[in-house]
Every structure is written in structure tokens, then in C-alpha cells.
């Protein structure tokens, strides 16, 4: 997705290379090519392409990757402001 880019310098993605065991699953599940393998270690190659979906962190066997995952959806975020995170829902409110 080189033609559609979102805001720069906002994402919460971090990678602790010392914990990486080189399984490369993160590079497989990322839909934006944010991570790539280099000398049997994962590295972040397109940080601003990240949409914080959390697939990489969820599937990392050693928790080398962290990200605050969430729904990138305005009406959902408005609900979290009004009702709090627990009660916010996407269903029927307009997002996804």
C-alpha cells in the first residue's frame, strides 16, 4: 500500500531484537510489509505503514513485538470516550 499512507510517527509498535528467535511469523501475518527478516532477525522496515492491528504481537512466540492494538475507527473511539473501553462496541454503530 504505497499509494495510501496514513499519519507518520504515531504508531505504538516496538520490536526487541534481542528476544527475536527468527521464526519470521510476524513477516507472514503483517498485511503491510512492516516487518522483514534480516540475518535471521526480524526488523521494522516500514514503521509508518503499521496500522496497529496486532497480528504480529499476537503471533510472536517470544513477545519480542509489542503494539497497542485497537480499532482504527472514529465512531468506536468516540464510544470509548463516552462509555469507556469496556462498553464500546462496533456493532451497528457505523464502523466496519
Amino acid at each position: 500500500m504505497k499509494t495510501l499512507r496514513y499519519l507518520d510517527n504515531v504508531v505504538t509498535l516496538t520490536l526487541d531484537a534481542s528476544k527475536c528467535v527468527g521464526c519470521a511469523i510476524c513477516t507472514e501475518v503483517c498485511p503491510h510489509g512492516v516487518l522483514a527478516m534480516d540475518h535471521r532477525k526480524a526488523q521494522i522496515v516500514d514503521r509508518d505503514g503499521c496500522m496497529e492491528c496486532g497480528a504480529c504481537a499476537k503471533n510472536c512466540p517470544t513477545e519480542a513485538i509489542t503494539v497497542t492494538p485497537g480499532v482504527g475507527c472514529a465512531s468506536y473511539i468516540i464510544q470509548t470516550w463516552i462509555k469507556g473501553k469496556e462498553k464500546a462496541s462496533c456493532g451497528g454503530s457505523g464502523c466496519c
Binding site: 495510501l4 496514513y6 485497537g70 466496519c96
Partner: peptide, 14 residues
């Protein structure tokens, strides 16, 4: 609001 329907907007950015 359309950010919720796109596959590239991060919640931090939104």
C-alpha cells in the same frame, strides 16, 4: 468516520 472502513489507519493516528 470512514477511517473505520479502511485497512490502513492506525487507532493511534485516528
Amino acid at each position: 468516520n470512514f477511517t473505520g472502513s479502511t485497512p490502513f489507519t492506525s487507532p493511534s493516528g485516528v
